[in-house]
Computed example of a mutant assay.
Amino acid sequence: MDVLSDVITVMRAGRPRSARLAWPVPWAQEFASVPGSAGFQIVLQGPCWLIAPDAEPVPLAAGDIVFRPHGRGHTLADSPATAPTGPACDPNDPRALERVATGTGGAPAGVTTVTLCGAYELDPARTHPLVDDLPELIHLPAHLGRHPELRATVDLLATELERPRLGTDAIIPALLDTLILHILRTWLDEHSASGTATTGWARALNDPATAAALRAIHSDPSRPWTVATLAAEAGLSRAPFARRFTALLGRPPLTYLTWWRMTTAARLLRQSDAPLGVIAAQAGYTSEFAFAGAFKRRFGIAPGRYRKGGAEI
């Protein structure tokens, strides 16, 4: 798998949620802060405002996409002057989304704004540093002809939510995963193209040498990588490669490799029935004992107990 696909696969937990909402004026809805989640708002029709604590209100227009990667609370409203009257909605709670969707009344006369809202559950124990690198708010304004794949995904999602049919329950989660990948891809491309990304993942994934090393790690994390073999993948000598990787990503290559192996192992423990020895081998360890020790140093808990649902210490 490529790096971005791996990031989403390893972090996702539970089932993503989404709803189509039609708002009659005046309206304002608060969306609760939900640690361990990421949320989005997409404007399909009409204008509105996104109001977040300690930030200036952001005007939104039809076609705009807003992504909140760290699950911070916010309000969507027809005007910054309109105050929410009902309870805050937890976008990870399907019952809360259903109540809000019912309250908006479908598409009655007087509706001026239609939005899609949604959320992804993320495992805080497996948060990838790429996500830590993202700002509080990613705003992708609508531009005719730009990002056609992203716009096509939005159109498909909107259609499935407005007119559910046979297979919709399977299609929507797949579209939501596709949507988050397109949002992140678009932000990474634009951030890198702007020239403002001097370090971090936006720069690293567009740097041929660092990107080649990351692809090698993610393609085969069990391989006995060394700085020298990763440098060969990157097409650099050992010392310049190590300096470049560390400068861009804030951690040395083997530190990232170990972190990724443990994170992958944690996902496999929770999401598969593979024997411990198999997971140890996939994490690059020839001994279950060595793997268990490394896992406990990372998570503060033995692999077997983690698999049974034990919390981190």
Rank of each mutant, 00 (worst) to 15 (best):
G310N: 11
R185S: 15
V3N: 07
R68Y: 13
I65N: 06
H74A: 12
F31H: 12
P303G: 03
A212Q: 10
L76Y: 12
G71I: 08
Q41L: 15
G118R: 14
G105E: 02
E162G: 10
A283R: 02
A290M: 12
I180M: 15
G195M: 12
E121P: 11
G105V: 03
A83N: 02
G71W: 01
A232K: 00
A109Y: 01
F245V: 00
R20Q: 12
P221D: 07
G86C: 10
D220R: 12
R185F: 09
T255N: 07
E162C: 12
D169N: 10
H143S: 06
Y285Q: 00
L150C: 08
W259R: 00
L269H: 10
L181N: 09
E233W: 07
D54W: 04
L175S: 00
S222I: 08
A204H: 13
A55R: 08
D54Q: 08
D54H: 14
A204I: 01
E190N: 12
L248W: 03
D93C: 11
L44Y: 07
L116I: 11
A81S: 03
L175T: 00
T127W: 06
R72L: 11
G73Q: 08
V154A: 01
W49M: 01
R261P: 07
L130R: 11
E136S: 12
T198W: 13
A158H: 03
A77H: 15
E233Q: 14
G14T: 11
T9P: 03
F241T: 02
E312V: 05
Q41A: 08
Q29M: 04
A109S: 00
E149S: 10
L21V: 09
T229N: 14
F245P: 15
G277P: 09
A83L: 15
A265F: 06
A283F: 04
C48Y: 07
G103C: 11
P135V: 09
D6P: 04
E288Q: 01
A311S: 09
R146G: 12
C117L: 12
P148E: 01
I65D: 07
F245N: 00
F291N: 09
T229W: 11
R68L: 15
E121Y: 02
I183Q: 13
I51M: 08
V34W: 03
